[in-house]
Structure formats: structure tokens, C-alpha cells
Amino acid sequence: MIAYALQRFGAAILVAWLAVSLAFGVLRWLPGDALDATMARAGASDAEIAARRLALGLDDPVWQQYALYLADVLRGDLGESLVSGQPVSEMIAQNLGPTAALAGGALLVAVALGVGLGVLSGVGRPAGVRYAAEGIASLALSTPVYWTGTLAIYLFTTVLDVLPGVGGRGVRYLILPVCVLGFHTAGSIARVTAGSIRAAAAMDFIRTARAKGLPESDVLDHILRVGLLPVTAVVALQLGFLLGGTVITEMIFARRGLGKVLLAAIDTRDYPVIQGLVALSAVTYSLINALADVLYGLIDPRVRMDR
């Protein structure tokens, strides 16, 4: 088991290193004066630009820049914003909390709703329940956040006036954005769950159990045990979508967070900030997935045998 965990995390670190290198490569692939242009737009003088070029080592050989960059990243130094001069790591620290709360909350909603809908559409009775659950899951999959967000604000804030729609801080303000982002994600979790449950229900031993006259509730129990196992692996994969989804959710609900920082950085073409944010999300995402795989391996020993 420990060997498997080490191997899995080793692979994740390799992937993270590649992702960070990719981010570096793309930034260097930019024409050099793109950085100068961004700084000039932000009002930097020629002397300041030259000083920054020197500090960034832009005139050094590429391998040297790369080594320096990796060393910086390892120390948690992601460079400075070309526009404001603020350290990128500080910008991330200031905005990580709200984004983590949003993504975490949305994951919660997505798992609860997704598994629920998935089970119902897999083995729900009567057929009407199945169809209803399936319908809701399909709807969730086909309505993007930027559409449900508008509807949810209109319905719950403007018409019903039960929940605050935009801005603000605290738990109450989190409910709508979390539900909107979680709803869309729930669609794909429901889909995987339903498929897995159906496959489990079709297994021989379930048929045998039924034939042997086991009470239906016990049979269901067995189906769920087998069917829900693969779902745990999918949940972690959804985090990637959630990280992307926070960008639009934060914009619609006027929340602060990394998504807003990213959109602002894209507008001003503040490359170090974009690079830092994207690299950070890649590292987070691959480590969390490794963690999920190891957890999954703990539950189901077959997994680590397979690999």
C-alpha cells in the first residue's frame, strides 16, 4: 500500500513539474516585448522595465532562467505582477479563501445531489422516479453556470427575496453560488453513478441474491456497496471543472477570489499572475487526484493490484 501511495504521489509530482514547466515554456515562447508592453501599459518607465528584465533574468540563457524559475516556485515565489508589482503568492494568499470555500461547498452539493440523483435514476422505483431523476441530471449537465446563475439570482433574490445574490461575505452569501456551481457538476456525477449502479445491479451475484429470496432492501444495499465504489474516483476529477467554474461563478455573483484575479490579469495581460494561478491549479489538481486514488486504493485493494 505504501509503495502504491508513493508511486501515485511520485507520478503526481512528475505531472505537476511538467505542468509548471509547460507554464514556463509558454511564457518564454511569448515575444519578449510582450512583457515590456504590459509594464509600459501599467505606467512603468524604461528604467523600471530594464530593471525588471534584469530581475527576471530575461536576458540570461534559457536553461538558467528555467533553473531559477523552478527554484523560485519551490520556495513558493511565483514572481510579481507586472501591473501592480505585488507578489503573485501574496495575491493568491489574499484570494484563496473565498475560492476554496466556493469550490469546496460546490463539491459538497455536487456529491450529495449527484449521488442521490444517480442512485435514483439507476435503481429508483417506480419508473417515473427514474425518469425524473434522469431528467434533472440531464438538465444539470446541459445548463451552464452562466445561465443558471442568472436564473437563480432572479428567482431567489429578486422575486422570492430569500437569499442574497451578490457580493457580501459570510455563509448566507455562499449558498446561491455554491448551489449553482454544484448543480452543474452534479450532472456528471449523477451520470457516472447511474451507470455504475446499473452495472452493479446487472451483476450475477445480485441476480443470485434475488433468486435466493433475499429481501429487496438487502439487495439494494449490496448494489449500492458495489456501485458507489467507482464514484469516489470520479469525484476528485470534478474538482478540475469546479476550479474552472469558480471563475464564472465569482464574476456573476460579484464574489472576490482567484477567478476574479485571473480575469483581471487576462485583461491586462499580466502574464506572471496568469502563469502563477494556472500552475497553482494544476499542482493542486494533480495532488488531490493522487490523494483520491490512494484513498480509493485503501477502500478497494483490487485497484492497486491492477496498476
Partner: peptide
């Protein structure tokens, strides 16, 4: 599943309270 939920809840709760 519960771990995910509890972790999520804890993160969300702490951050929101902090806010």
C-alpha cells in the same frame, strides 16, 4: 463520501466564519 463532505463542510464553514 462522508470524509469529503466533512472536509468540505469544515473548509467552507471556517472560511465563511473567518470572512
Amino acid at each position: 463520501l462522508m470524509l469529503v463532505c466533512c472536509l468540505g463542510m469544515a473548509v467552507v464553514g471556517l472560511l465563511a466564519l473567518h470572512d
